[in-house]
Simulated scan of single mutants.
Amino acid sequence: MAGSQEDRPDLATEVFLTHRNLLFTVAYEMLGSAADAEDVLQETWLRWAAVDLDEVREQRAYLVRITTRQALTRLRTLGRRRESYVGTWLPEPLLTAPDVAEDVELADSVSMAMLLVLETLAPTERAVFVLREVFDLGYPEIAEAVGKSPVAVRQIAHRARAHVAARRPRGVASPAQTRGALAAFQHAVRTGDLQGLLDLLAPEVVLLGDGGGVKQAVPRPIVGADKVARVLATGLGRLAASTTLQPVQVNGHPALLLRLDGEIDTVLALRVEDGLITGLYAVRNPAKLSHLVRETTLSR
């Protein structure tokens, strides 16, 4: 027997909260922005609250469909916004709990490196890839979410998978390897040890900085161990006494949180492959640092 009409808001809220972390993760992986993912969740809730729950057979699938459609709409708008972004655009970093790092596939999918690869996909390709490869949804379910036929979704998934495979990081370092590289890196930049930095950096390492036009950052990618080491040794090796470097988990991977006079100034995420640092991502845009005051729960 169906519940009374008065029961519906509570039931709708309960179901939404049950799946909230999953929905946030879907939106974040599609958008690379926690702030935009939160907006998508708000829009999802408004639509979910207006649904007749008696007509919904699979609540999780229904919520994922709403979230995906809202994220796709926002993603197309963001694409136009990012064309006028000042300097390099990087994903919004998240402070994550240790359990995210323990889920290797989830940690890989939300890493700064992977989110940048996903940025090179068309919106529908990104949605299909995320729903299929990360959340293991079936093709009919994805087809409902993106408004395509299952046959078309299979083709899109194949194309997106090949695109990502050609661009994703090659070797996945173990958590212990990454922590070791981070500790050595932290010591080298603190002491301005140029040779120590060079020993840690891969020959073709890339440094990216995102200041959003508000904070100073490298205006374009810096490539090569020698150039990157010199920039880091100069910029980070002369930190003020009021600056602290704190090891944290960002997007499921070890990173450094740089505080100036107690305030978060920069997040520096690392990509480690075969024991060497191949990517450095420095996020300084203040608008992207607000989610670092607390851990964000991600789930699949």
Rank of each mutant, 00 (worst) to 15 (best):
L256Q: 07
L276T: 12
V283A: 08
G237Q: 05
A287N: 13
R259Q: 08
A240L: 12
G224V: 06
A255M: 08
A282H: 10
V231H: 14
A282G: 13
T297Y: 10
P247M: 07
G237I: 09
T296W: 01
K215N: 05
V223C: 04
L236Y: 14
L292A: 06
L268E: 09
L270H: 08
T296D: 00
A217G: 11
V272R: 07
A229G: 09
P221C: 08
G262S: 03
T278Y: 03
L289N: 09
K215L: 12
T266A: 06
A240C: 00
L232E: 08
V228Q: 10
D199R: 15
E273V: 05
A255N: 08
N285F: 06
A255L: 08
K227H: 11
L257C: 02
R271Y: 00
Q246R: 13
A217Y: 10
G237R: 11
V293T: 14
L208Y: 14
T244Y: 01
L256I: 11
Q246V: 14
T297S: 11
E263Q: 14
E295L: 04
D274Q: 15
P203I: 02
T278L: 04
N251R: 11
G224A: 09
L289T: 07
T278I: 05
G213L: 07
L268S: 10
G262W: 00
D274I: 00
R220Q: 14
N285Y: 11
L292Q: 06
V218K: 06
L201E: 06
A287W: 10
I222W: 02
P221L: 07
V205C: 09
G235D: 07
Q249D: 13
T297R: 15
Q216V: 12
D274M: 05
D226L: 13
D199P: 02
D261V: 00
A202C: 04
P203L: 04
N251S: 07
Y281E: 07
R294S: 15
R271T: 13
K227I: 01
A233F: 07
R230H: 13
I264W: 00
V231G: 00
L256S: 10
L258R: 15
V283R: 11
K227T: 08
Q249L: 15
A233E: 12
L201V: 05
L280I: 15
E295N: 09
L200P: 01
S242A: 14
H291Q: 11
V205D: 12
Q246W: 03
G262M: 00
L207I: 06
T297H: 13
A229C: 10
L268C: 10
P254F: 04
